[in-house]
C-alpha cells in the first residue's frame, strides 16, 4: 500500500509549477527591493523603483492566478474560503487601525503594511492547515 501522506502527481506538478513561476517573481522582488534601498534617490531612480515594485506586484498576482486556475475544484474551494477569512481579518484590522489613527495613538501608514502582511499570512496558514490537517 503506497504511503497516503506522499504528495500525489497533481500536487507535485502544482508545486513544481509554482516554483517555476515563482522564481522569476522572487528575483524581480529582490531587484525592486535593491532599487529602493538607497536613501538618496534621484527622480529617475525613484521612477524605476516604483515601476519595478508595480511589475513585481502584478507578477505576484499573475503567479497566484495561474496557481488558482491550475488547482482542482476542492483546492480552489479551500483557497477561496481561506482568502475570505483573511479578507475579513484585514477589514477588521483596517477598521481598528483607522480608529487608532483617529485617536492619535498610531499613524495609519505604519500599520497598513503589517495588516496586509498579516492578512496574507492568515490566508496561507489557513489554506495550509486545512489541506495539511486532513491528509
Amino acid at each position: 500500500m503506497t504511503n497516503q501522506a506522499q504528495p500525489d502527481q497533481v500536487t507535485r506538478a502544482a508545486r513544481r509549477a509554482i516554483l517555476i513561476d515563482g522564481l522569476p517573481v522572487i528575483t524581480l522582488g529582490g531587484v525592486a527591493l535593491a532599487l529602493g534601498s538607497s536613501p538618496d534617490q534621484s527622480t529617475t531612480q525613484k521612477a524605476l523603483w516604483i515601476a519595478a515594485t508595480a511589475v513585481f506586484a502584478l507578477a505576484v498576482a499573475w503567479v497566484l492566478l495561474r496557481a488558482f486556475r491550475r488547482a482542482d475544484e476542492y483546492l480552489r474551494k479551500i483557497q477561496l474560503e481561506s482568502m475570505a477569512v483573511a479578507f475579513a481579518a484585514v477589514l477588521v484590522g483596517l477598521q481598528v487601525a483607522t480608529v487608532l489613527d483617529s485617536a492619535g495613538v498610531v499613524p495609519l501608514h505604519q500599520l497598513t503594511q503589517l495588516i496586509v502582511i498579516g492578512g496574507l499570512a492568515i490566508w496561507l496558514v489557513t489554506a495550509d492547515l486545512r489541506t495539511r490537517f486532513h491528509r
Binding site: D8, Y74, H134, R135
Partner: peptide
Amino acid sequence: QVSRQAINA
C-alpha cells in the same frame, strides 16, 4: 485528474 486531498475529502 484531481488532487489526492480532493479524493480524501
